[in-house]
Computed example of a mutant assay.
Amino acid sequence: VEVPRFYDKEERRTEESSYYKLLHEIAKPSEIILKKIIKGLSQRDYEEVTRSVLESFGISQSSISRAFIEESKKLLEEFEQRDLGEHDFIALVIDGKYLSHENIVIALGITMSGVKAPLGFIQTTSENSEAIKGLLKNLIGRNFRFEEGLLTIIDGSKGLKKAVKETFGKFTLTQRCQWHKRENVVSYLREEEKEIYRGKIQRAYNEPDYET
């Protein structure tokens, strides 16, 4: 919030929000806590995750009911075990993101109607093919259908490409993410040239054919 205040028209005065101030006084989770949360998610130790979240905000276990911990554990389990068969996925986006210096590979599905749905994720030291295949096989085990054709979008990683090919075979068409490709190209340019060539590359992407 750029201006953390509000104006009282009746009293004709400006006041600071005490609740907003309290939010800023909450200590940020430590790196140790964040790693515990990530480890719990990747190993499906959902109860440990919820306990770690409570620790990160300085909340003692005695101040939270067991019902909250059990309900949070249940929701995380449901997310990781959802049946994907009810959706008609036509595309799959796979990308790695860093959270507290840990690499998390995320699988995002896109349905026939254009709805994006997070499907699953794993923690891995690198985007190696064996780890990614484990993620993809988990999706298939949850009835992720791909036999009618699937567009897979990745960042260009050889490990990702190999895992996708070995898992989905002839049923998938793999495309390198345009954003990753564009940023890889402009990374070799001087700072003052980057925005110029970002625009040129994006305009090239938007062309319907190569004849213009």
Rank of each mutant, 00 (worst) to 15 (best):
V1E: 15
E2T: 06
Y7T: 09
T14A: 07
T14Q: 06
E16T: 10
Y20V: 07
Y20S: 07
L23H: 13
E31F: 11
I32Q: 13
I33R: 09
K36D: 01
I37K: 00
K39L: 01
G40Y: 00
Q43H: 06
R44M: 07
T50E: 00
L54P: 07
E55P: 07
F57D: 13
Q61Y: 10
S62L: 12
I64A: 02
S65M: 03
F68Q: 03
E70N: 10
E70D: 09
L75V: 03
L75Q: 02
E78R: 06
F79I: 04
F79L: 03
E80C: 02
E80Y: 00
Q81A: 08
E86A: 04
D88W: 09
L92N: 01
I94T: 09
G96K: 01
Y98H: 05
S100R: 05
H101P: 07
I106C: 08
G109I: 02
T111H: 12
S113G: 11
A117W: 08
G120V: 03
I122H: 01
I122Q: 00
Q123Y: 03
Q123H: 05
Q123P: 02
S126I: 10
N128Q: 09
I132N: 00
K137A: 06
N143Q: 13
N143G: 14
R145M: 06
F146Q: 05
E148P: 14
L150M: 11
I153D: 01
I154A: 03
D155F: 12
L160P: 01
K161H: 07
K162E: 01
A163F: 01
V164M: 04
K165C: 05
G169M: 15
T172P: 05
T172M: 08
R176Y: 10
R176K: 11
Q178V: 13
R182Y: 10
R182C: 10
E183H: 11
L189M: 11
R190M: 15
I196Q: 14
Y197M: 08
R198K: 12
R198E: 04
R198C: 07
Q202C: 15
A204E: 15
P208C: 14
D209I: 13
